[in-house]
Amino acid sequence: AALTTSDSGHCTAEEAFASEDASEESSLLSSEEEDSENGGDIREELTKPLQVSSGQKLKSENLIDETSDIEDLLKEEDDYKEENNYSIETSGALKWKEDLSRKAAEAFLRQQQATPNLRKLIYGAVTQDNE
């Protein structure tokens, strides 16, 4: 099984063989499924390094490059997004600390306008000048 796989490098044949082997083994060993599965796994493990040889390697490298590029892009995007999120979060977390004095002044004025100035209502605008 190991020899056949080295020749082709194509996944289909290997898979066919593997499936055949599996069927053979399963028929031979009959009962225990666990053993057969384990054997299959071992074979696959053996074949994999051989697969990654000639043309496939280039392809895979290309793929890897592409994927890495995408990953980089994604990463950049992710980073970008994360940075954005980070900035938003931090600004949100610390927003209440910004312009505290101005906010206090606004709150004071709001309070002043909300509560009627009885003194002014009773005595008129003259009191404002006096004050």
Binding site: T115, P116, L118, R119, L121, I122, Y123, T127
Partner: peptide, 20 residues
């Protein structure tokens, strides 16, 4: 009472501090 406060101001020059 409000008018009375105005009169107190004009007769006695007394203005109250009014807090709600």
């Amino acid at each position: 009472t409000i008018e009375f406060l105005r009169h107190l101001k004009s007769f006695f020059q007394i203005m109250f501090k009014i807090e709600t």
